[in-house]
Computed example of a mutant assay.
Amino acid sequence: MALGAVLSLTLASSAGAAWTGQLSQGTSNIIGNESCASPAAGKAVCAARSLTNTFAVNKYATGAWSGWSTLAGVITSAPSCASDGTGVVICAARDASSALFYTRYDGTAWSTPAKVGGQLASAPSCASFSAGHVLCVARSLTGGLTASAFNGTTWSAFSAVAATTISDPGCAGDGKGGVICTVNTTTGAVLATRFNGTAWSGVINLGGVATTAPTCTYLGLTGQVACLARGSNSALYVNRFNGGTFALAGWSGWGGLGGQGSSKVSCANTGAGLLVCGVFALTDSALWVDSFNGTTWSGWGKVGGTGIGDPSCTSTAAGKALCALVSVNNRGFSSVGP
């Protein structure tokens, strides 16, 4: 990932031309990163950390946001939200005791946040592995991974993956009853592992030199995910798992997407084999996007805004993504495209 051409983000400004302008999510201030998921077509929910370190939650429908409201309890990390495929969204974060803490959006209202347990050393990454089931994974206190699965009613005992990690994990459901997670090591190399619904596979070294925590997204094709990270030259790179047996041979290897990123990448699956990805640019801190049509990438195009932290993108309809950001004044904004 240290190799490859570094392409200026300004070379493909037309890629962002079809996006809406920045839509305010409300006047309340939030800290850190948002996490967004879509419970149903045309809708999205987002969670963030409020100024009082509680869950701040927001709903999007018919082109407008409800505004931020806060839930009980204290969180000490950014949340991670995942749709369970049945119209429900689970949002989880680390609480003041380093335990997993979550709230459930049932399509109408949010549940009172509750403690799951465990001991987390990072923010979690949550992903659905089958209808009604969500797995939340975080870095453990021993440097590996720790995870618990929610079946719609209860959470499982925490499982563990032994590894030497230094970043938050980036996880995605694979559409085949599993979740694939990636994480950085001390050398910057990226490790990958898969949860098959009941147990974990071995750990695979994908190599590279990642300078942000990797993020993974389901490709809308059974068993396939795409994982993206920033390389040592600040350009963005992608590695695709093509399904089948979970082994190094099933991965494409890191391919360069150019650009100059200052944040983690966030992607949304907008159809079978389709992705829309957003990142904040190193040059202007604005949101830039790149789309994958199943064969080729469009090139990075500027959407706008000035973001801090990382963006969060989710699909709201076929061919459409909503990307949310926290601006320098700690207000949330979103754009929809392409």
Rank of each mutant, 00 (worst) to 15 (best):
S156C: 04
G144C: 09
L145T: 03
L135C: 08
L145G: 07
T153M: 04
S83E: 03
F129G: 04
S156V: 08
T108R: 14
S125F: 01
G173I: 15
A163H: 08
A114G: 05
T164W: 01
A82Q: 05
A82I: 09
W155H: 07
L141S: 12
A162R: 11
N151R: 10
C91Q: 04
D95P: 11
S167H: 09
A172N: 12
D84E: 12
L145H: 01
Y102M: 03
A82E: 10
A96Y: 13
T86N: 12
G152P: 10
D84M: 02
D168G: 11
L135Y: 12
G178S: 11
A162M: 08
G173H: 14
C126R: 03
T112W: 02
L145P: 10
L100K: 02
L141P: 03
A92M: 06
F129T: 08
T146D: 10
V137I: 15
A162E: 14
F158G: 03
A147E: 04
V137G: 06
G143P: 02
S111R: 03
S128K: 13
T103C: 01
K115W: 00
G117L: 06
Q119A: 13
S125R: 06
A160R: 12
C81V: 07
C91E: 02
T146L: 05
F158E: 05
Q119W: 03
D174W: 05
Y105E: 01
A149W: 05
S128M: 07
L100Y: 09
L145D: 08
Y105K: 07
V179E: 05
G173W: 12
A172H: 12
L141E: 10
T182A: 04
P124S: 06
G87S: 10
D95G: 04
T86P: 00
I180S: 01
N151L: 07
A172Y: 09
D168R: 14
P124H: 15
G118Q: 01
V89E: 13
K176I: 01
T153S: 15
